[in-house]
């Protein structure tokens, strides 16, 4: 029980005649970065709202840190929703203090920690400014700080990088990895597959209210590995053969899929007879390919 922070068991949520979640199961280990993937409208946001107790499941259970999820857990969870904003007319400092206190921090503790983070992010001079004077990226930094300020055990980020320029996105990524080092468990929802591969340990893919994939990234990739190879040739041509089919030719690389009954050991010999090979490797599918494939199959 100790190495699992959050367990979602058979969670069902129905809105009228629309099923948002249908018996969803997830197991999120402590200290992991867990990618929550899925197309728009798959039910990710509903799931995140259930974990945040914004809404309750119709059936099923959510176990947080070994206990049934309840109101007291609110202060142990930090949530950065996709639809995030700030009060435009309020001053940055006042607002950050307000949001921190709503999470259960005392005024003095919130003030001290906020000053620390504002200095760290080099935004202390924004403290007395009104939010409407800030750019979107600036506001995002403040939202990020407020989300992590109370040192939650579980952090939930919904599209955390949207609205950031590459420099600030890198800064946030660094902080997210830092938080994991400190033992925080992170749920990370995004459409940007490259960031999933970079930082997630495990993922769950939700489509049409159901989990269609769940597990460690390497395991999932292995499952999706097929008889596809990447080949580059000197003159950028590849002689066709009945042993394989060319799936695509992109950036001077041929992607070939060999026939299942063909002996793989003979492949290089066969290829070398007709072509001048520069490189040859087994193709590991990217998360994006897996995403698309899983959804098409599911």
């Amino acid at each position: 029980m100790t190495d699992i922070l959050l367990e979602i068991k058979d969670v069902v949520k129905v809105y009228g005649d629309y099923t948002a979640l249908n018996k969803v199961n997830l197991t999120i280990p402590k200290g992991s970065i867990y990618g929550l993937l899925g197309p728009n409208g798959a039910g990710k946001t509903t799931l995140m709202r259930i974990i945040n107790q914004i809404t309750a499941p119709d059936s099923g259970s959510v176990i947080f840190n070994g206990e049934v999820l309840q109101r007291e857990h609110i202060s142990m969870i930090g949530y950065l929703p996709e639809e995030r904003g700030l009060y435009k007319k309020m001053k940055v400092g006042e607002q950050a203090l307000y949001l921190a206190q709503l999470k259960g921090m005392s005024y003095s503790e919130a003030l001290e920690k906020l000053k620390y983070w504002f200095k760290k992010f080099e935004i202390i001079e924004w403290w007395p400014k009104k939010v409407e004077e800030l750019s979107k990226g600036m506001a995002q930094k403040i939202q990020f700080i407020v989300t992590i300020l109370h040192k939650p055990k579980l952090l939930i980020f919904d599209e955390p990088f949207s609205g950031f320029d590459p420099i600030n996105a890198a800064l946030i990524r660094k902080e997210i990895l830092n938080l994991r080092e400190l033992g925080t468990t992170i749920i990370f929802s995004t459409h940007r597959m490259e960031s999933v591969e970079e930082i997630c340990d495990r993922i769950a893919l939700i489509n049409n209210a159901e989990t269609i994939l769940e597990g460690a990234i390497e395991d999932i990739k292995k499952d999706f590995e097929q008889n596809t190879y990447q080949i580059a040739t000197k003159n950028n041509t590849l002689t066709e053969s009945k042993e394989f089919i060319i799936k695509k030719h992109e950036d001077q690389i041929f992607y070939i899929e060999i026939n299942t009954n063909f002996n793989k050991k003979d492949l290089i010999t066969t290829l070398n007879q007709n072509n001048d090979i520069i490189s040859f490797k087994k193709h590991t599918p990217s998360m994006e390919e897996i995403f698309i494939k899983a959804i098409q199959n599911g």
Binding site: Y79, P81, G85, L102, G104, V146
Partner: peptide, 18 residues
């Protein structure tokens, strides 16, 4: 309406009940 259009409402109701 202001809280809704500013998109702050979801941040707040993750801390307090609606």
């Amino acid at each position: 309406i202001e809280e809704k259009t500013n998109r702050i409402v979801e941040v707040i109701i993750s801390s307090v009940k609606p």
